[in-house]
Design a protein around this nucleic acid. Structure first.
Lengths: 140, 140
DNA sequence: GAGGCTTGTGTTCTGATATAACAAAGATAT
DNA sequence: ATATCTTTGTTATATCAGAACACAAGCCTC
């Protein structure tokens, strides 16, 4: 019914990415935590990326292809962690160590979709950002 | 099981607010839609509010007292619409008319709390931002 | 292959959002 | 009255995001 796994477990880079999208994807894949746009920019200074625009453009492309999610509450970005498209993206954000897990909650998603539908709302997408303390930090 | 109602139905201003918190609360109460910090600032120019800091401080105070929520996906703020404290704040954001409803989904909240707990995560709070088309806009 | 189209890229500049740091005024308690 | 706490005022700066324009490479069509 629910499962959590660390983002970024070394994964295959998807096909069909442009040069800059590959660079940004690799930067995100190499980080255990979500990265901010300007953090990505810093990391890619070596690769010749100089301007924020370059990073934001690549992030836009990756987001539109479903490979990346933005955590609005952190102004940060993470690789997408699941297979097919979901209506609800759910994230566990640890306020202690900053780690972020993407959580899959099939049953809850269905309930949300139902409740939203009952309110006569045509849902396009949803994002659930959960803040708290992860199990590692909770055990001190 | 679920209910939606327009935010901002003319409501009583809570007690215990500072002067600037009252000003910001009134501005939010007067708006059908969420307001950005700088929009609030513009509205309060007449009242002698000149600096962003003033607005952000008041918003912080109101948030910490539970009277206001921030919609991170919009960088905007709305009055809190429900009674007691909830673990999950849910918002219906219309991408067509920008209206925002705060939705109460007791059953779904309980499921979320359970699923998060099952992942050994100590949850402090959660925010569900649902984007789509509201019933008014859906009917063209 | 000349011209037109699209896509990706590079660069500069500007806009939008948010906070740090310090000063001063007002309230409250002892 | 004076020490302390909260709130407010002000300036300056940090952070996040996108507009606008130019250029180059690939790919059509004719």
């Amino acid at each position: 019914m629910s499962s959590a796994s660390h983002l970024n477990g070394s994964r295959e880079r998807p096909a069909g990415l442009s040069k800059n999208e590959k660079l940004v994807w690799d930067a995100l894949a190499a980080s255990p935590d979500p990265l901010k746009a300007y953090e990505i920019l810093d990391q890619l200074k070596d690769c010749g990326v100089r301007a924020p625009m370059t990073v934001y453009r690549a992030l836009d492309g990756l987001e539109s292809k479903g490979h990346v999610h933005k955590l609005e509450g952190l102004n940060a970005f993470v690789l997408c962690n699941h297979e097919g498209p979901h209506m609800v993206q759910s994230f566990l954000v640890c306020e202690s160590c900053s780690a972020v897990d993407e959580l899959t909650m099939i049953a809850v998603e269905a309930d949300i979709v139902d409740a939203v539908h009952a309110a006569n709302f045509q849902m396009n997408n949803a994002r659930l950002e959960i803040k708290g303390v992860c199990k590692d930090c909770d055990a001190h």
